[in-house]
Design a protein around this nucleic acid. Structure first.
Lengths: 136, 136
DNA sequence: GCTTTATGCTATGGGCCATAGCAATGATCA
DNA sequence: TGATCATTGCTATGGCCCATAGCATAAAGC
């Protein structure tokens, strides 16, 4: 069967992201985390007290969607909101959040290593810079 | 602001695919098409009479989700189902489907060219093979 | 002080994917 | 040939992620 779609980098990009995302989501799911959760934990660990808006901007999540997202993280005890002024609040990891992050890191690093191992050696170092150029 | 996520190819893959997908979806939307629609039209043009199951397998769409998908394409007059035997049917493009495909091709080829142009020259030829290795 | 902007929020819908289960047909094989 | 198995197309349903519109309050800017 002919597949002309295989010539399109954009199509390959979508399929690759879906395939990789499915694997990672499944593994993070065993920790009770989604991909966005793990990303948020990593970002908050590196930048404690980040604002909801700024965290959302970094993750590419809109303000409106940050609300239920952070609510869930807070309900599960990974995160707490600390008021900064009347309208702004800093998001901080709880001890439980940091503990879960440790587990998540293991999963993610294993996953990323496997991912890189899938691409032929001669293309390997080019993947990350090429991908970053597409959205950064 | 520190962003440790930028070291992860898997994360960059997801962000790049989302960014690219948003642009393509918007442009195809002006033609009344979604990404999966355009992919299906291209595949059906290259392989007339493809079965729903086989088309779904090629596109990475499950049987259950092919039903409303093909219903819509049929309702909009892009596709017709031709019974092969009692339980199998071949999907064929209609003239209207082929016409819309012509427009879609223009959009997609422009998009793909712009996408490739975004990646630095030294990484350009590595992108497609690297991505194909991640799911093919 | 008044206007403008930023922040966090509610409500809602779309697109895409996944699972479970079903009826009917075709294929396989004793 | 007849019984079993596999395939095909389908219904129903829910989850996840994203997008828009609109709102109240608070801070910043003039």
């Amino acid at each position: 069967m002919k597949d002309p779609l295989l010539e399109f980098p954009g199509y390959a990009l979508r399929r690759a992201a879906n395939a990789a995302g499915a694997i990672l989501s499944e593994r993070l799911g065993e920790l009770g985390l989604r991909q966005a959760d793990a990303s948020a934990l990593i970002l908050l660990d590196a930048n404690p007290g980040l604002t909801s808006s700024r965290l959302g901007a970094a993750l590419g999540i809109q303000r409106a969607n940050m609300v239920p997202f952070l609510n869930r993280l807070e309900t599960e005890g990974f995160v707490e909101r600390v008021p900064i002024d009347g309208r702004t609040q800093g998001i901080h990891l709880t001890d439980q959040g940091r503990a879960r992050l440790t587990d998540a890191r293991r999963v993610i690093e294993t996953f990323e290593a496997e991912l890189i191992a899938m691409v032929p050696r001669e293309h390997r170092t080019h993947l990350l810079p090429a991908l970053l150029a597409l959205w950064k």
